[in-house]
């Protein structure tokens, strides 16, 4: 196993573990306010210090990991669930109107950055974690559709697919039984990358107030709260920021490592 993958797995596992443990245990209740203890720097009682309400930052980071992971995971799932079938369909009907419509729709969705989608959704339905999931998820659809189509197109030219066609299998059967398993590696790698981008997007949306709403803790929201206090309590901004960076870095390293592991040709080309 390569170094990137190991380091990525360690960092990602730590965050996932923190999120899972937060369901059963946190050092303090993440909503518990303790004004006399406010704005403490990291110490033995509060490992990451406390915020302006005296809430324990370590507990908030643990529960915030839950929000980040949940939003990014569901958003990636939306992208895969809708994007992959569309990509397979477009590749199976290469050059047809279906292909053209799918690809042009992809181009159109690409013109709406996830923040713009979030602005539209929020303007209509109000802010919230669910709307953040929808916004990031919609942006993921064309990513997966495009990557699936690209990989599937080259597979359709291969001899084993020709053999399946000669055997009388339908395009749907071939797509599901032969194409999909062969593009799975690519989708796993892209899924990891989109997951890390989802974490960043969720943090950005929460920071501007379009994502998770109080009392649901989120790393982006913690940074927004810290902004006016950064001059006298920089740990309020440093700690959630480091949590985001380490998570995204871990996922990116894992993505790189998985790509090298699953497609050794790329490793040779990149080194």
């Amino acid at each position: 196993m390569n170094r990137n993958l190991i380091l990525g797995l360690i960092l990602s596992s730590l965050v996932i573990l923190a999120a899972l443990v937060s369901f059963v245990w946190t050092p303090y209740a993440h909503t518990a306010m303790n004004i006399p203890q406010k704005l403490q720097t990291p110490n033995a009682l509060h490992w990451f210090g406390t915020d302006h309400f005296g809430r324990d930052i370590f507990s908030m980071i643990m529960v915030g990991a839950r929000t980040s992971i949940a939003v990014a995971l569901v958003a990636v799932s939306i992208g895969i669930a809708l994007g992959v079938p569309l990509g397979l369909l477009a590749a199976a009907r290469k050059g047809s109107w279906t292909d053209e419509i799918v690809m042009r729709s992809n181009d159109l969705v690409f013109a709406f950055p996830s923040l713009v989608i979030a602005i539209l959704i929020t303007a209509v339905f109000g802010a919230g974690a669910v709307n953040a999931i929808i916004a990031i998820g919609i942006f993921n659809i064309p990513v997966f559709a495009r990557i699936t189509r690209g990989a599937a197109l080259s597979l359709w030219e291969r001899e084993f697919i020709l053999a399946a066609r000669v055997a009388g299998k339908s395009a749907t059967h071939i797509s599901v039984e032969h194409i999909l398993p062969n593009v799975m590696n690519l989708l796993i790698v892209q899924g990891t990358i989109q997951f890390s981008l989802g974490i960043l997007a969720e943090a950005g949306l929460s920071y501007v107030g379009l994502g998770a709403q109080p009392p649901t803790p989120s790393w982006g929201r913690m940074l927004a709260d810290a902004q006016t206090m950064v001059s006298f309590a920089p740990h309020l901004a440093l700690i959630p920021g480091m949590a985001i960076i380490l998570t995204v870095l871990g996922l990116n390293l894992m993505g790189d490592g998985l790509r090298d592991l699953l497609d050794p040709r790329l490793r040779v080309r990149r080194s």
Binding site: S196, L200, A203, Y207, A226, I244, I245, L249, N252
Partner: peptide, 9 residues
């Protein structure tokens, strides 16, 4: 991996 708004802060 760095969120631009955190970097800005």
């Amino acid at each position: 991996a760095v969120p631009n708004f955190w970097f800005a802060m």
